[in-house]
Amino acid sequence: MAGKGIADYVRGTQVWKSIFRHGPPENARNRAAVVAGNVFLHLHPIKLKKSGVQLGYTWCMGGLTFFIFLALTVTGVLLMFYYRPTAEYAYNDIIALKEHVPLGIMREIHRWGAHAMVITVWLHMFRVFMTGSYKPPREFNWGVGVILLVLTLLLSFTGYLLPWDQLAIWAITVGSNMAKATPFMGHGGPGAALAQIGDFVMVSDKNDVRFQLLAGRFVGEPALLRFYILHCVFIPCIVAVLIAIHFWRIRKDGGISAPL
């Protein structure tokens, strides 16, 4: 009974009461208060339909995607302490991460987490489709979700270059050369040959979309820096905003879908 006594004492202190303004969530009033009064928990509604909490119905894939996104943010920030995005250092920094840094699995968690996130996003979309959850009133949120799916793939793709090994550089070479073939906007795409006045080529390898992506004509050091910024700052910011919209709309559109 001593443990109970200590727990009761801690709950009675001024410090505890200043942090948790309600009693333990053992009765209806406090269960409402804990969800409504906590900045993180209030993503949830206070009550929801029973079908919406069943794992067999939701598979929890959306929630896991968000969790993995947070885990990737944390591990990513930790990795940034040891990584320099230059052709000279990048590869050696990755080796150092494995060999000279305690908890040498940080990069593994980040990499496998990225792959896992792609899988959970796909399965989330699969579930949402199968339960018809894109139907009115949730059409807009489905669109936001599709864009988030693309951004997830782009995040993973930009991160793929950062180890600066053979796997990275050639995967990005193949991928970015598809941008070269964009109609009218890439110099190797249909329409580019038509945009030519005499000897003056309007769409060349120095001003097309691939050049913008790589800051060069091939995957080199400027591309590494550009992908690093896209991976660590640019795309995560957009994703964060869209996740906020996505969650907000789930609540506003009536929570997890259920039969009308």
């Binding site: 001003n207 050049f211 913008q212 800051a215 060069g216 004509r217 091939f218 080199g220 400027p222």
Partner: peptide
């Protein structure tokens, strides 16, 4: 911002 992403000189 778009023009900013096209450097005038690169070291290739």
């Amino acid at each position: 911002a778009f023009r900013f992403s096209y450097p005038n000189v690169n070291f290739e």
